[in-house]
Computed example of a mutant assay.
Amino acid sequence: MNVGYGEAMVLECPDPACRNGLFVMLIDGGGNEPSEFADRSSGRVPMAEYLSGRGLDHIDVMVSTHIHEDHICGFLPLLEHWTPRELWQTLPVEFYRRMRPLDVPEGVTASQSKFLRALNDYGRLCALVESRGSTIRTITAPARMELCRDLTVQVLAPSGPQAEELKDLLAGVYDAEPAAFWSRLNQLDARMNNFSLMLRLDYRGTRLLLPGDTNCMGYGGLEKADLQAHLFKVGHHGQRDGVSQEQLRAVAPDAVVCCASSDRRYNSADPGVLTMAASGGAKLYFSDCPPVPGAAEPLPPHQALVFTVGPNGALEGRYLPL
């Protein structure tokens, strides 16, 4: 979905065993800041509004890849209309109960404000999901699961020890004395991307690699064969550190998706990264409408980028117009 600077995905897979014959999985929910959607000329739309327009009637699995505002805060408005059957995340299920609401004082940086709100919304999200009788599931590598007929997911990261490290770092923020609080908060914020859930979906042999905000430093220990995918959602919004050339060669994608805002905020949709992906033969796609190096025409305004896996693994991408 086009949520501006953020990520939000919906996966729909036919299965007669599922409600209304359809398995529905959400992977991240974008942000929830009104300013992100003040200008909708490129097609930006909050996730809840987009899904309401599609007539969605259920959510089987909701996945929070990591706790950053532009990935998790858009989930809360969804709970006004839907409750997922399961919420996937990486922390121990009981951990959210020790997370007290954190003040967001005036004068903090924009990054600090966003991260504090993300932590608060994560705690609220878990509490609401559990209060409605749904399951909160801790997901770490190397778990492999069958989601529905013909669709499996392989969790590539984080490992159990990495998830335990994240829990300890987060506990250190909540247990910190006032003098150490901001330092610990900033350190965790800077490291959070590489605690992202990295998922590889396989539908009848067509692979989709979704690394969350994992950047090029977060691929350590992964086997090259595990990275190969037909579609690759580049990490960290296509910033310069989003992926290395060696990693791109290992993935060898036919299509690369970059979730960058039309204004290329924070130097997302880095021209060097995009050129590197295109030079390897991949076709480039975008959730929003940033400028594309060498493109003859600008991207069309769109609410979403839709991929369909067809017969014999055919992968078709198209922009959903306004």
Score class of each variant (00 low, 15 high):
61 V>R: 10
198 M>C: 15
73 C>L: 01
121 D>E: 13
91 L>H: 07
238 G>V: 10
141 A>E: 09
111 S>G: 11
84 P>D: 14
305 L>E: 08
213 D>I: 00
89 Q>E: 09
298 P>K: 03
170 L>G: 00
264 R>T: 08
175 D>C: 07
253 P>D: 04
287 S>P: 08
115 F>S: 04
216 C>Q: 14
154 Q>N: 08
105 P>T: 03
244 S>C: 06
76 L>P: 00
271 P>H: 02
321 P>A: 07
37 F>S: 03
18 C>I: 00
240 R>E: 15
162 Q>M: 11
45 V>L: 11
165 E>D: 10
130 E>W: 02
8 A>Q: 06
308 T>G: 06
62 M>L: 15
15 D>T: 09
290 P>D: 10
164 E>Q: 15
312 N>F: 07
314 A>F: 00
258 C>N: 02
40 R>A: 10
275 T>N: 10
236 H>K: 15
264 R>G: 00
61 V>A: 03
311 P>E: 08
183 S>I: 12
122 Y>P: 01
107 G>N: 06
51 L>V: 05
247 Q>A: 08
238 G>E: 12
44 R>V: 11
322 L>M: 12
280 G>M: 14
152 T>V: 15
158 P>Y: 04
243 V>C: 13
192 M>H: 00
2 N>A: 04
204 R>I: 01
191 R>E: 14
251 V>E: 04
91 L>E: 09
34 P>G: 06
272 G>E: 15
313 G>I: 01
23 F>H: 15
101 P>G: 11
20 N>W: 11
7 E>Y: 03
152 T>N: 12
70 D>C: 04
301 P>I: 14
79 L>F: 13
210 L>F: 13
314 A>V: 08
259 C>F: 05
279 S>I: 02
306 V>D: 10
58 H>E: 11
79 L>K: 05
269 A>T: 02
211 P>Q: 12
250 A>N: 10
309 V>P: 01
317 G>P: 10
154 Q>V: 03
321 P>C: 04
96 Y>N: 02
213 D>E: 05
264 R>H: 02
222 L>F: 12
314 A>R: 10
318 R>D: 09
290 P>S: 12
200 R>N: 11
191 R>Q: 15
252 A>C: 14
1 M>Y: 03
182 W>H: 13
250 A>Y: 10
141 A>L: 10
250 A>I: 13
6 G>L: 01
108 V>F: 06
96 Y>K: 01
80 E>T: 02
270 D>E: 13
292 V>K: 05
151 L>K: 09
216 C>F: 06
72 I>N: 04
93 V>G: 06
118 A>H: 05
159 S>F: 07
8 A>T: 05
4 G>I: 09
46 P>I: 10
140 T>K: 06
213 D>Q: 05
275 T>F: 01
310 G>A: 06
226 D>Q: 14
63 V>D: 05
204 R>D: 09
319 Y>H: 06
255 A>F: 06
212 G>W: 00
286 F>Y: 15
73 C>D: 13
108 V>G: 03
131 S>E: 15
237 H>N: 00
99 M>N: 04
48 A>S: 09
66 H>D: 03
21 G>L: 08
164 E>T: 08
171 A>F: 02
